[in-house]
Design a protein around this nucleic acid. Structure first.
Lengths: 363, 363
DNA sequence: CTCCATGGGTATATCGTTTTACTCGGCGGC
DNA sequence: GCCGCCGAGTAAAACGATATACCCATGGAG
């Protein structure tokens, strides 16, 4: 008992301002270190009065367990990783990612998990190296992936690294990776969009998208073609370039250049491109939606800001983020029967706003 | 020697698939654990041939030091924290934050630092609790703050927690906190904007901003008033509400409602508001810039996407983020004479694009 | 009266590094 | 020929928490 006192960390500490450790709490409460540990981890074997004393002591010292020590001991890091294999400025321009992150954070924050972000450039090995470090250095409990790619090598890598992973989107070739996506029909949004345009009398519809190294890029383009095909139509044009505003502007210029092959409506692969494309059209003297109807994808906040407001295929990115975080928790401890099993994510659906209208007669 | 062998961690490990530790590397290289540590930390006292053997062994085992163990030992966490005291969806809507983050990451990534993001709600104590946890649990080496507030209590809190902090922006009342901001005159951007509008013949200029609990909100409004005053003008109207698109729309409706007090130009406190305001005006039948000139603040990517392109006061948020990260490194080890001392951040300056034009005659 | 179970704890090994002693052989100086 | 020192390593004590093994009173059963 007296021994306890004399070897207390307090005595060897120089400054009083150092952060308290579990030993300080134990000393103050007059119990052993292990007793404190049991109390804060809600493990049995400590009597109610003692528990109370421990809690009081902890409170008084403003102590809470050191995350690094806990992590070292083999428990949780309480952090989830995310690696973005894009250059920082591209990322800044496309809020898609931020919206997703905000959804993830919404689940993480209440349980005091953090999100460790690593933005690595687009150089070949960078992304893989980032994952390796995350795993080898044991910085996170798991990672969330997005932008499912064709021939994606990340899943295999992460399995090999034994790092739990959750993919937002559809894996390439039915990989066994845990993934989250909207419920219902994945193709609903694009079908609705095509239907909407057809109803408005459009027969000449173009599609502008980014590189087909992503799973969703190919999928959506195919759905688009299929939906048109069912109505006996064929795409007026399909432009595949980059997921950037610049690319969208260039694409629109080309689409509108030849009067005889000019579409009356364009579907874009994301809202940023759609907004940029819409502006480009107006700059060329085409009114939206009178001369050209425009549809985006994602339902980012920007779509509601612009004039005319963007008709778009909304996918619930925030919910998707939440679902990913929930799935990750399920992966981390399969026991704790996931309380609210995967928040339902509604399927992508068309949101008709102002950028679509009846097809122009002339066309 | 043989002892070394028999007590090697490998022997007590069950599975071969466990991640290697420094002891494994030491065993493979035939040296002691401390020797390995010295080698990887570039400390003297180990001969070149031995160093090589150690490196080889580490490489072969794909070993890299466990971040948690290193952190526990008192060294660096290699992570910087950031706490956003806003609800997740507000954040998603305003890319200001993401752009800043992308700048921070640009500096962090090359030196393998991560950014630990904590988005806490707007409830009163939430932000403080988040900082406390970050500090108590020793999860990060320091934190970066934004949105300097009037009567900000965070600086004091962080000092008390002994958590290194860097503020992006100007502290309230010359607090000794380390802060980064653009070089040159802070008021340059707004002065230029007012000058620009005056040159175009505008005499009736309004200002729409968010709550004045932030340092920059008040500062900018004052600069605006002063700049107008120097030209013998007074603000037609100043609207103070929220930093949201909705608020901007409402403000514009009010500004344009009364024909006799109608401004010919509006300055908004950020680009998101400006874009929303611009659309609102157009929806009410006012052409931009013919009937109303609009200027934003921040130079977010969205400004270039819309039609007409937004004239705005650009501040180099990416550079600001980089500077913050650099300042943080300087704070973390003052010795390592900061190589590229604080990347220069250019002062806020007007970017004239398409949303401003000559004042309408009628007004 | 002895034995064993049980409640309520305590002592200690352990996680994977870093760092602060030491050790030890050789070599130059006096 | 002895001393001190230096280069090249090694052993062991932290860092802060958790889990396992143990310990010691009680108390009830037999």
């Amino acid at each position: 008992m007296a021994t306890q006192q004399s070897t207390s960390p307090r005595t060897r500490r120089g400054s009083r301002t150092d952060k308290p450790t579990i030993a300080d709490v134990a000393a103050l409460a007059g119990v052993s270190v292990s007793a404190v540990s049991k109390v804060v981890n809600n493990r049995p074997g400590i009597s109610p009065p003692t528990r109370q004393r421990v809690w009081d002591a902890a409170e008084k010292l403003r102590w809470s367990p050191s995350a690094t020590a806990v992590a070292l001991r083999g428990a949780r890091t309480r952090a989830i990783g995310m690696v973005a294999g894009r250059s920082a400025d591209v990322l800044a321009a496309d809020p898609h990612f931020s919206v997703l992150i905000s959804g993830i954070e919404a689940e993480l924050a209440p349980v005091d998990y953090g999100l460790l972000l690593h933005i690595v450039g687009e150089e070949p090995g960078a992304e893989e190296r980032a994952y390796r470090r995350l795993a080898e250095e044991r910085r996170v409990d798991g990672v969330i992936l997005t932008e499912s790619r064709i021939g994606d090598t990340r899943f295999e890598l992460l399995r090999q690294l034994r790092l739990p992973a959750v993919l937002v989107g559809t894996p390439w070739r039915e990989d066994p990776i845990v993934s989250v996506r909207a419920g219902g029909e994945q193709d609903a949004g694009i079908r609705e969009a095509v239907h909407h345009l057809a109803e408005l009398g459009h027969r000449h519809i173009a599609y502008v998208s980014g590189p087909e190294d992503r799973v969703h890029t190919v999928f959506r383009r195919r759905v688009f073609e299929a939906a048109l095909g069912e109505r006996g139509l064929r795409p007026t044009r399909i432009v595949i370039s980059e997921f950037t505003a610049d690319a969208a502007v260039k694409a629109v210029r080309r689409l509108l250049a030849e009067p005889d092959r000019r579409p009356t409506a364009v579907l874009f692969a994301n809202d940023t491109m759609a907004v940029a494309g819409m502006s480009a059209a107006r700059r060329l003297g085409f009114d939206v939606p009178r001369d050209l109807s425009v549809i985006g994808y994602d339902d980012l906040p920007v779509g509601e800001l612009v004039y005319p407001r963007l008709t778009t295929i909304g996918q619930d990115l925030v919910q998707l983020g939440r679902a990913a975080a929930t799935a990750m928790f399920g992966l981390l401890d399969p026991d704790r029967a996931a309380p609210v099993e995967a928040p339902a994510v509604r399927p992508p659906g068309l949101l008709v706003r102002e950028s679509t209208g009846p097809a122009a007669r002339g066309a």
